[in-house]
Amino acid sequence: MGLLARLRKEWFIIGIVLVILSAKLQPSVGVRGGPLRPEITVAYVAVSLIFFNSGLSLKTEELTSALLHVRLHLFVQSFTLVFFPLAVWMLLRVLELTAIDQWLLRGLQTVSCMPPPVSSAVILTKAVGGNEAAAIFNSAFGSFLGIVVTPVLLLLFLGSSSSVPFSSIFSQLFMTVVVPLVLGQVCRGFLRELLERRKPPFGAVSSCVLLMIIYTTFCDTFSNPNIELDPTSLLLVILIIFSIQISFMLLTFAFSTRSGSGFSPADTVAIMFCSTHKSLTLGIPMLKIVFEGYEHLSLISVPLLIYHPAQILLGSILVPSIRGWMTSRHKAVKLSALQPV
C-alpha cells in the first residue's frame, strides 16, 4: 500500500494526533470563552450536527427496529448506570489503601456515575459498521436517564446534595439530540432518492465533527492551571482509567458474544461502546451543579477530563481490529448458511 493510500485510510487517527498537538501548542484557542466558543459550537452546534447527520443517514425502519431491541437496551443501561458504578466503588475500597490522591479517587467514582455520551459511542459504532441505530437510541435514552439517575448516584456514592435544574438540562438534551435526529429523519423522507443515488460521506462528516470535539476537550485539559496534582497519582489514575476501559470492553464483549446471548456482531459493537463510554458534555455541567462551591471540584473533574479523550483514543485505535472481527464473523455466518444441512 502506497504512503498516500495509507494516509487516506488512517486519516482519522492522524487527525486525532494533530488536533491533540495543536491543543497542546495553543490551548487558548479552543477553551471555553476562547475564539472557537466551544460552549456553543461544541455543546450545541457540533452535537446537533452529529445527530442531524445520523438522522439523515439512518433508514427509518432501522431506527424503529432498534426501539424494539429491549434486551440490548436493558443490558447497556443496567451495565453503565448500575454495574459500572458498583464495580468502581468496590475497586476504590482497595485503592483507598494506597497513596493515590483521595480527590482523584472520588473523581473516578463520579466518572462511573455518568451517562453514556451523545457523540463518541455513536460515531465509533458507525465507523466499525455496528448497530448504529441501537447506539443512537442508547446514547439518547441513557443521556435522558442520566439527568435523573446521575445526581442520585453521586448523592449515594459521594454524599453531596443539591438541587439539580432538571428542566434546563432536559431541554438542552431535547434540543441537541431529539430535535436534530427528527429533523434529519424528516429531511431524509424528502431526499431519500437523492441520498441513495449520491451516497454522501456521512461517516467522514461525523468524524470531522468528532475531531473538533477532541480538540476543544484537550484545549480545556491543557489550559487548566488551577489543578495542583501529584504527578505519580495522576499517572496511576491514567493507567487505572485505561485498565477500566479495556476490562469493561472485554467484559461486555464476552457477555454479548456468548452462545445464546441473542446479540448479532453489529449489536456487540454498539454494546461495547455504549456501555463503557461516559459523557463529558453532560458530566462537567453536572459536576459543577452537584459540587457547586466545592474547593476540590477541579481535582474531582480530572478523571472525567482524562476518561473522555481516553475512550475516544482507545476506541479509535480498536476500530480496525473490531471491524476485522465483525467482517470475519459475517463471513463465517454466510459460509455456515451456504453449507448443506
Rank of each mutant, 00 (worst) to 15 (best):
L7N: 01
R8I: 06
R8H: 08
K9V: 11
E10M: 04
L21Y: 05
K24A: 14
K24Y: 15
Q26W: 13
P27L: 08
G33T: 05
P35Y: 07
L36T: 13
L36G: 12
P38L: 12
E39L: 07
V42L: 14
V42E: 15
V45F: 14
G55V: 14
L56I: 00
S57W: 08
T60V: 04
E61H: 13
S65E: 11
L67I: 13
L67C: 09
V70Q: 03
Q77R: 09
Q77K: 10
T80E: 11
F83M: 09
F84T: 02
W89E: 02
W89S: 10
L91F: 12
L91V: 06
R93N: 11
R93P: 00
V94I: 15
L97P: 00
I100G: 12
Q102E: 08
W103Q: 08
W103R: 02
L105S: 10
R106I: 04
Q109W: 04
T110L: 03
V111K: 01
S112G: 03
M114W: 09
P115I: 05
I123A: 09
L124W: 12
T125P: 15
K126A: 06
A134W: 03
A135P: 03
I136T: 13
F137D: 05
N138Y: 11
N138R: 09
S139L: 14
S139F: 14
G142Y: 05
F144V: 03
F144C: 02
L145S: 13
G146K: 06
V148L: 11
L155M: 05
L155W: 11
L156H: 11
S160G: 05
S161F: 13
V164G: 01
F166G: 08
S168Y: 08
S168F: 05
I169V: 10
L173Q: 14
V177N: 14
V177T: 15
V177Q: 11
V178A: 13
V179Q: 01
V179I: 15
V179P: 05
L181Q: 10
G184L: 00
V186Y: 09
F190A: 12
F190K: 09
L191M: 11
L194Y: 15
E196A: 12
R197P: 00
R198K: 13
F202R: 04
F202A: 04
G203L: 13
A204I: 05
A204S: 08
S206C: 04
C208W: 15
V209C: 06
I213N: 07
I213W: 01
I213S: 01
T216V: 15
T216G: 13
F218C: 10
F222P: 11
I227K: 06
E228M: 00
L229N: 10
F242W: 12
Q245P: 09
Q245V: 06
I246A: 02
F248P: 04
T252Y: 11
F255L: 15
F255H: 03
T257V: 07
T257M: 02
S261F: 06
P265L: 05
P265Y: 10
K278W: 06
K278A: 07
T281Q: 08
I284D: 01
P285V: 03
L287K: 05
I289P: 00
V290Y: 01
E292M: 02
E295N: 01
I300N: 00
Y307F: 10
Y307Q: 01
Y307M: 01
A310F: 07
L313W: 03
S316W: 03
I317Q: 06
V319H: 07
M326I: 01
T327N: 07
S328E: 14
R329Q: 13
K331Y: 01
L335G: 02
L335N: 13
A337E: 13
L338I: 00
